[in-house]
Design a protein around this nucleic acid. Sequence first.
DNA 1: CCTGGCACTCCCTTGATGAGAGTGCTAAAT
DNA 2: ATTTAGCACTCTCATCAAGGGAGTGCCAGG
Lengths: 351, 351
Amino acid sequence: MKQGQVLNERSLQLLKTLVERYIHDGQPVGSRLLAKDSALNLSPATIRNVMADLEDLGLVHSPHTSAGRVPTVSGYRLFVDTLLTVKPLELSELSLLRKSLGDTGNVNEVIGIASKLLSEVSHMAGVVTLPKRELVSLRHIEFLPLANTRVLAIFVTNEQEVHNKIIHTARQFSASELQQAANYLNSIYAGRSLAAVRAQVIKELRDTQEKMNKEMLEAVQIASLALDENNAKEDYVLSGETNLMGFSELADMERLKQLFDAFTQKRGIIHLLDQCLSAEGVQIFIGEESGYHAFERCSLVTKSYTIDDEVVGVLGVIGPTRMAYEKVIPFVDVTAKLLSAALNPKSSSPS
Amino acid sequence: MKQGQVLNERSLQLLKTLVERYIHDGQPVGSRLLAKDSALNLSPATIRNVMADLEDLGLVHSPHTSAGRVPTVSGYRLFVDTLLTVKPLELSELSLLRKSLGDTGNVNEVIGIASKLLSEVSHMAGVVTLPKRELVSLRHIEFLPLANTRVLAIFVTNEQEVHNKIIHTARQFSASELQQAANYLNSIYAGRSLAAVRAQVIKELRDTQEKMNKEMLEAVQIASLALDENNAKEDYVLSGETNLMGFSELADMERLKQLFDAFTQKRGIIHLLDQCLSAEGVQIFIGEESGYHAFERCSLVTKSYTIDDEVVGVLGVIGPTRMAYEKVIPFVDVTAKLLSAALNPKSSSPS
DNA sequence: CCTGGCACTCCCTTGATGAGAGTGCTAAAT
DNA sequence: ATTTAGCACTCTCATCAAGGGAGTGCCAGG
């Protein structure tokens, strides 16, 4: 509608202060306030003209005729992508993070702590996916006979984690047979990644049946059952969901129920978090960008974390669209680095 | 204030219909409605007199002068204790329960299913405590050396469940030493209850140190670490919390947050559920009776469940005080029986 | 002891009113 | 051509009064 050069320096500056202001006090911000708040020395009338332009561009929006302006999703997007000036972490927060994420053995415990930290420091909800099991190494495997042809398979990964699964074997095995199979598998496969073990097991089952003796073959067959693909259930640890109940923009019970239902369903959220696995740096989903209805008024700030320089999971903060991105982004960033450090036994501390 | 005989047959009958009516449609019930609803053929004026008596006794309460009456906690209590006529389960519900709680191996899975059933059938929240570990028997124990003096202890109980714990031993043990210790422990203790094993281990540590050889002694020492008392963290599986968001009496965000915080804290709820362990039959906490502020507007209907005729856990339904007790009570009752049956390998079906 | 009648109380909705905030537009000023 | 001042307009929100509705408490009569 308007001619050419609309998004000049000045309008961007105004958008920036508008978003900052709105994030700060949650009220639609009007032209007078914005005139004072921006250091531009413009009259409210001028501001109004610029606002009309921004509204044409879909960056801001008026709840009704005589309310101020509120950023739209595109407005937020532009803001976080190009206008935002991140604030460094408070020293007290940083030291809390460092202290809490000091190496404390058990992986699940560390993940839980990280999730709790994310929620407590941000005062929103924190989420951390469990590390992808594919990439961790097998340490020890053990089989116990149950009733009939069922066998309890226990495997220990990565020095700390214990997983178990009940499998149904073709025939009944005795305890000593199973012991033997486990011994064989441990001697061959211990120390290699689960994915590698699975691949190798499947390969052996295909190729070399004739060359193996009966015991080995059976061991491999059992292993193939135990390592069945769909073990690798992804999951996450969520903390501080209840913090979200404090935000007025989520006060609608209907919406809140949908959000919490999504949390317990897990499916959608996991899918969303998976999209962040491959991304570099901090990733942000604003409002409906996520494609999930339940997240309509929420934003998600995430970053992947690593074990042995391999991306294995994602962590992040879930909160209302109107959140203090300039603080949350560096916070998530640092937390991801510290978690990675905590999970890498012999790592150097992050820069 | 009033003279003698106030709680006669008729006033009880009226209280009963009042509570039923209020539970049904959530509105304070007035004298006219109550006059029609009760089969007593009394005029509204008479009803009003009775109501005044009931109010004096603290059984009902008027939100304001010209509203009808609402049952108080004592009113509910009297209702569920002596007035309630329970309704048998719908056949469709019963068959759903039977089908879903057919024996499906893994204990944790069954517990999860039970919790979900409780919430889905009742349309409120369902909760099931994990079985007390004390009473299950040890099937197999296993130790794996970690870095330094840390050892990963894995024990399998009750045919299905795998627990693990990281312990810190006095000195570093090799894999074969640990293997030997595990072998010794398995040969001696497998099949006995965890509590018994712990007691025996402690006793041996005290009494018979000189009689044992070094390996056995060390095995027992490690076992004592692994079976340390405070392993036995109680926990529960909660389902359908979000159902509670639908109830208008819990619509206050502040209150709701407190309730959900209590759910994640777990401490208070576990304490509450523990009180039901010893009780016979279905136990009910109405509103503030529980002593927990967060439960002010909620009721809890519970019953214990058993393994091998031994009470090991509690299950129940959490909902608003205004719930259909006459349906929930038999439902919880039956679910507890079916869960007990599902957890008893060789049980007969409940009567 | 029950009942009809009646005055009374309280809630809730409706509609009117006015203040406050902020906009859009136009015309003047720079 | 851009910025500004001025002004009419719109919309929200809080307040208030009025009226209907529901239900009570009490009293007097059956």
